[in-house]
């Protein structure tokens, strides 16, 4: 935290709402420019939706917004929230984690029984469980879980932790109707204190609100 708005917020000492700032982003896939000149600010309060067809660049943009990969040009700033007012150790003690990131290709090791994973989650993740794990999964090996059950377990552990920034890439994929509604409600609640961005190639759920960005493959329409 050495320059830019992050350090200013830190020096203020006041916790402010987590805000995700993208400035003049350019993202390339090989030689192809998939996002160019993207400037955007998203503050906690509502879920932001990133909608577009396959190949439009949603996943690449999400990874850059999560700061897992650098942009070809421009920059992403994560401003405010726990980590600006706490040292990492203190934020850790409070159960805070700055970024949560999910991609549907994340999977569980098949040899592990589901209960081992939920126990790991119980020890790593304090407090509330927005997507409660299904205890009935019990001794099933993860390899024997349905894809939906597996994704729900993974998502549940990410959502259970206090986050300043939550970036979920296709979280609705493989979920049943009930689980989708549950997820939408959970995201709406979490967005009050976290900057939440959801990428989807489907339509935004009926019950959702918040800004929608449409990626067309040639640009972004807000």
């Amino acid at each position: 935290m050495s320059d830019g708005p992050d350090s200013r917020a830190a020096s203020d000492g006041n916790e402010r709402r987590p805000t995700l700032i993208a400035e003049s982003l350019e993202i390339r896939r090989g030689a192809t420019v998939i996002v160019s000149g993207f400037t955007w600010t998203h503050e906690a309060g509502h879920v932001a939706w990133l909608v577009g067809p396959n190949g439009a660049g949603k996943s690449s943009l999400m990874r850059v917004l999560a700061r897992l990969e650098p942009a070809a040009a421009g920059r992403v700033t994560h401003l405010g929230g726990h980590a600006d007012s706490d040292s990492p150790a203190e934020a850790s003690r409070r159960g805070a984690c700055r970024v949560g990131y999910y991609h549907p290709s994340m999977s569980l090791p098949g040899e592990v029984v589901a209960r081992s994973f939920t126990r790991l989650g119980d020890r790593l993740v304090p407090h509330d469980k927005p997507l409660a794990p299904d205890r009935a999964l019990g001794r099933k090996r993860c390899a024997d879980l349905s894809t939906g059950e597996e994704k729900r377990l993974l998502l549940g552990q990410i959502l259970a932790r206090a986050r300043d920034f939550l970036l979920l890439d296709e979280p609705y994929e493989h979920l049943s109707g009930d689980a989708r509604l549950e997820l939408t409600d959970a995201l709406t609640r979490l967005a009050r204190r976290s900057a939440v961005v959801v990428a989807t190639n489907q339509e935004v759920p009926d019950r959702a609100d918040g800004p929608v960005l449409r990626l067309t493959g040639t640009g972004i329409l807000t």
Partner: peptide, 26 residues
């Protein structure tokens, strides 16, 4: 900037549960 903090009690406390998970997995 530090991200991806360990479990609620810090790094030391996270090693135990994760090691146990890896042990079961192994």
């Amino acid at each position: 900037m530090s991200r991806g903090y360990a479990a609620r009690g810090g790094r030391g406390e996270a090693i135990g549960p994760l090691a146990l998970f890896e042990l079961r997995r192994g």
